[in-house]
Amino acid sequence: MNEVANDVAYDVELDCQGMLCPLPILKTKKVIDTMEIGKILKMLSTDAGSMNDMNAWTNQTGNELIYSTQNDGLYTYFVRKT
Protein backbone atom coordinates (compact mmCIF):
# COMPACT_ATOMS: atom_id res chain seq x y z
CA MET A 1 0.00 0.00 0.00
CA ASN A 2 2.85 2.33 0.84
CA GLU A 3 4.41 1.65 -2.54
CA VAL A 4 1.28 2.84 -4.30
CA ALA A 5 1.22 5.96 -2.14
CA ASN A 6 4.85 6.64 -2.92
CA ASP A 7 4.07 6.45 -6.62
CA VAL A 8 1.81 9.50 -6.62
CA ALA A 9 3.81 12.55 -7.64
CA TYR A 10 3.43 15.52 -5.33
CA ASP A 11 4.74 19.07 -5.05
CA VAL A 12 4.55 19.79 -1.33
CA GLU A 13 4.73 17.50 1.69
CA LEU A 14 3.17 18.21 5.07
CA ASP A 15 3.87 16.03 8.11
CA CYS A 16 1.06 16.12 10.67
CA GLN A 17 2.08 12.96 12.52
CA GLY A 18 1.41 13.15 16.24
CA MET A 19 -1.16 15.95 15.90
CA LEU A 20 -4.80 15.65 16.82
CA CYS A 21 -7.98 17.39 15.60
CA PRO A 22 -8.21 20.10 14.40
CA LEU A 23 -4.47 20.66 13.73
CA PRO A 24 -4.07 18.40 10.65
CA ILE A 25 -6.94 20.22 8.92
CA LEU A 26 -5.77 23.70 9.97
CA LYS A 27 -2.19 22.99 8.83
CA THR A 28 -3.43 21.50 5.56
CA LYS A 29 -5.50 24.61 4.86
CA LYS A 30 -2.53 26.88 5.65
CA VAL A 31 -0.22 25.01 3.28
CA ILE A 32 -2.83 24.69 0.50
CA ASP A 33 -3.30 28.46 0.66
CA THR A 34 0.36 28.97 -0.25
CA MET A 35 0.21 26.57 -3.23
CA GLU A 36 -0.63 27.27 -6.87
CA ILE A 37 -3.77 25.81 -8.39
CA GLY A 38 -3.22 22.31 -9.74
CA LYS A 39 -0.31 21.52 -7.42
CA ILE A 40 -0.49 18.42 -5.23
CA LEU A 41 -0.03 18.20 -1.49
CA LYS A 42 1.00 15.02 0.30
CA MET A 43 -0.17 15.05 3.92
CA LEU A 44 0.80 12.49 6.56
CA SER A 45 -1.26 11.98 9.70
CA THR A 46 -1.58 9.56 12.59
CA ASP A 47 -5.00 10.89 13.63
CA ALA A 48 -7.58 8.12 13.13
CA GLY A 49 -10.26 10.77 12.65
CA SER A 50 -8.37 12.39 9.81
CA MET A 51 -9.83 10.08 7.13
CA ASN A 52 -13.36 11.41 7.67
CA ASP A 53 -12.09 14.93 8.35
CA MET A 54 -10.05 15.15 5.15
CA ASN A 55 -13.01 13.86 3.14
CA ALA A 56 -15.24 16.51 4.72
CA TRP A 57 -12.69 19.30 4.32
CA THR A 58 -12.07 18.58 0.63
CA ASN A 59 -15.83 18.28 0.03
CA GLN A 60 -16.37 21.67 1.67
CA THR A 61 -13.50 23.52 0.04
CA GLY A 62 -13.69 21.93 -3.41
CA ASN A 63 -10.06 20.80 -3.29
CA GLU A 64 -9.66 17.34 -4.80
CA LEU A 65 -8.70 14.37 -2.63
CA ILE A 66 -6.93 12.33 -5.29
CA TYR A 67 -5.89 9.40 -3.21
CA SER A 68 -5.74 8.36 0.42
CA THR A 69 -4.32 5.31 2.10
CA GLN A 70 -3.88 3.88 5.56
CA ASN A 71 -1.06 1.65 6.67
CA ASP A 72 -0.46 0.60 10.27
CA GLY A 73 -1.88 3.79 11.77
CA LEU A 74 -0.26 6.11 9.24
CA TYR A 75 -2.69 7.94 6.98
CA THR A 76 -1.44 9.44 3.72
CA TYR A 77 -3.44 11.92 1.64
CA PHE A 78 -2.85 13.46 -1.77
CA VAL A 79 -4.82 16.63 -2.39
CA ARG A 80 -4.86 18.65 -5.58
CA LYS A 81 -5.50 22.36 -5.06
CA THR A 82 -8.37 23.59 -7.20
Binding site: C21, P22, I25, L26, K29, W57, Q60, T61
Partner: peptide, 12 residues
Protein backbone atom coordinates in the same frame (compact mmCIF):
# COMPACT_ATOMS: atom_id res chain seq x y z
CA UNK B 1 -12.38 27.42 19.11
CA UNK B 2 -11.98 24.00 17.46
CA UNK B 3 -15.24 24.35 15.56
CA UNK B 4 -14.63 27.98 14.65
CA UNK B 5 -11.07 27.44 13.36
CA UNK B 6 -12.08 24.35 11.40
CA UNK B 7 -15.13 26.01 9.83
CA UNK B 8 -12.94 28.97 8.85
CA UNK B 9 -10.46 26.52 7.31
CA UNK B 10 -13.37 25.16 5.26
CA UNK B 11 -14.04 28.61 3.94
CA UNK B 12 -17.10 29.28 6.12
Amino acid sequence: FILASTAAAMGW
